[in-house]
């Protein structure tokens, strides 16, 4: 791996005002992500993982700290300055239904990023669209269709194709498969895996599913209350969790294996837990 990481995040803080006062969803997060690598960010709802992703995408201003893309500082830049970074960092969203404009044909949706960033001659853009459709497993003649004509899994393929149109170095995937059925989830995970080997793109993969991450990610960072409480190779974290939070989470995950004992948190006969453990 090269010396300079693709993405270097250092002591990132983000806080903002809401009606009930100040909240501080990201509290001093640091990590590196290298080229062609998948880093999973795992945590429960409200732990700050999506806010962190929004900071990296430049959709949310960080309060302090540093975000560097191949050594270039992105934090604190204004809209115009961020523009040149945007093609390099793209995002796949959780809900493939609400993230596509229902009134546009798929080939228009996929062309848009190229039009916005003036990539390549106009007459070649459509060809690039069709190539990308084939790459993500959609027949290119479906380009004339509208989003509602596709199933959830197919729409997520469109979302991935659209995010990859600008050939980004970094793809932020925010729960890309949690709205999908398991058999379709497997199709999309395999697709992301193939695309990474093909294109060398890095993934920041946001998830609450540690079992999926154990299969898919190279490294995992466990996030709890705005901080990364543990990180390491995905398999290592699963087998040998170091933090209380990770251990508690693993104890609660039902593994689809009947030869194992049920996780302790599932058993009424196990020692009673604090009933307000994760609730406030």
């Amino acid at each position: 791996m090269s010396m300079t990481p693709l993405l270097h995040v250092k002591d990132l803080h983000c806080s903002f005002k809401v009606s009930s006062g100040m909240i501080h969803p990201v509290r001093g997060v640091s990590f590196d992500l290298h080229r062609g690598e998948t880093l999973a960010l795992v945590g429960e709802s409200g732990c700050g993982k999506t806010t962190l992703a929004r900071c990296i995408l430049g959709l949310q201003k960080a309060t302090s700290g540093s975000i560097q893309l191949e050594g270039n500082e992105m934090a604190g830049l204004d809209r115009m300055q961020l523009r040149k970074f945007r093609p390099r960092v793209q995002c796949v969203f959780q809900d493939p239904f609400s993230s596509l404009n229902p009134r546009k044909r798929v080939e228009v949706l996929l062309r848009e990023p190229l039009d916005v960033h003036h990539v390549g001659p106009k007459e070649e853009r459509l060809r690039a669209v069709h190539e990308m459709m084939e790459k993500v497993g959609l027949p290119s003649e479906w380009g004339r269709r509208f989003p509602h004509e596709f199933s959830g899994g197919q729409r997520q393929r469109i979302g991935i194709a659209r995010a990859l149109m600008l050939r980004p170095d970094l793809l932020i995937c925010d729960e890309p498969v949690s709205a999908l059925d398991v058999s379709v989830q497997a199709q999309i995970i395999n697709l992301l895996d193939e695309l990474q080997r093909d294109l060398g793109v890095s993934y920041l993969f946001i998830s609450h599913d540690l079992t999926l991450v154990e299969t898919f990610a190279d490294r995992v960072a466990m996030m709890f209350k705005g901080e990364i409480v543990e990180s390491g190779p995905a398999r290592e974290v699963w087998r040998n969790p170091q933090s209380d939070f990770t251990r508690r989470m693993i104890d609660a995950i039902p593994v689809p294996d009947v030869t194992r004992a049920a996780p302790p948190a599932f058993r009424p006969d196990a020692a009673p837990q604090d009933k307000t453990m994760t609730e406030s």
Binding site: H208, D251, K275, M277
Partner: peptide, 9 residues
């Protein structure tokens, strides 16, 4: 969340 899921089950 998974920890809450375990509590509910």
């Amino acid at each position: 969340d998974v920890t809450v899921q375990a509590q509910i089950m």
